[in-house]
Amino acid sequence: MLEVRDLEGWYGESHVLHGVSLDVAEGEVVTLLGRNGAGKTSTIKAIMGVLPKRKGSIRYLGTETAALSPDRIARLGIAWCPEERGIFASLSVRENLTLPPVIAEGGVGLEEIYTLFPNLKERLGSQGTKLSGGEQQMLAIARIMRTGARLLLLDEPTEGLAPVIIQQIGRTIRALKERGLTVLLVEQNFRFARTVADRHYVMEHGRMVDMIGNDALDANMEKLHGYLGV
Rank of each mutant, 00 (worst) to 15 (best):
S132F: 15
K55I: 00
V30C: 11
L131A: 11
P52C: 11
I87A: 03
R179W: 05
I103A: 06
N96K: 04
Q188S: 12
L7A: 02
A46F: 04
S132Y: 14
L224Q: 03
E3H: 12
G229C: 08
L116W: 15
A89M: 09
P163D: 10
Q127A: 13
N214Y: 01
R54C: 00
P118Q: 12
T65N: 00
V50W: 03
T195L: 14
A38C: 01
M208L: 13
W80D: 01
M138D: 10
I113Q: 09
T147V: 13
A89W: 04
L153W: 08
E28H: 11
G206W: 05
L61A: 12
S21E: 00
L153Q: 07
L152H: 10
S21W: 02
A140P: 09
M221N: 02
G107E: 10
E3T: 08
R179F: 03
V183E: 06
I73P: 03
V209I: 07
R150C: 09
N96W: 02
V102Q: 10
G9T: 01
A149R: 13
T158S: 15
L139V: 10
D6P: 00
L151R: 05
T43S: 06
T31P: 01
S92P: 02
R143G: 08
K45R: 15
L139I: 11
T65F: 01
E112L: 11
M221W: 13
P157D: 02
V16M: 08
L124D: 12
D210R: 06
I103C: 05
I78P: 05
V108Y: 09
R75K: 10
I165G: 12
I58Y: 06
P52I: 11
T172K: 11
V16H: 12
L76T: 00
M1Q: 08
V30Q: 07
E83S: 07
F117Q: 12
E178M: 11
E156H: 03
G148N: 09
G19S: 09
V209P: 04
R207G: 03
Y11K: 04
A25Y: 09
G170D: 03
A149Y: 13
L153V: 12
H15Q: 04
D210H: 08
A140W: 05
V209W: 01
N96T: 02
I78G: 10
I113L: 15
L116Q: 15
L68C: 01
G109Q: 08
I165N: 13
E83K: 08
I144K: 14
G37Y: 09
A25S: 14
L22M: 12
A66K: 00
I144R: 14
P118S: 14
N36F: 06
S42H: 10
R179S: 03
I169Q: 10
G107T: 07
G160V: 08
M221Y: 05
L217I: 15
L116D: 12
I165M: 15
E8K: 07
A193H: 06
I173Y: 02
E111P: 05
R146F: 05
T129Q: 13
K177C: 04
G109A: 11
G170Y: 07
I103G: 04
A89L: 11
L97E: 08
R75T: 00
M211T: 04
A216E: 14
T98N: 10
L161T: 11
N220I: 03
L91T: 01
T41H: 02
N214T: 13
E204K: 04
A104C: 06
D23Q: 06
R194M: 13
Q168I: 06
I141V: 15
I44H: 04
D155A: 07
Q168C: 05
D210I: 02
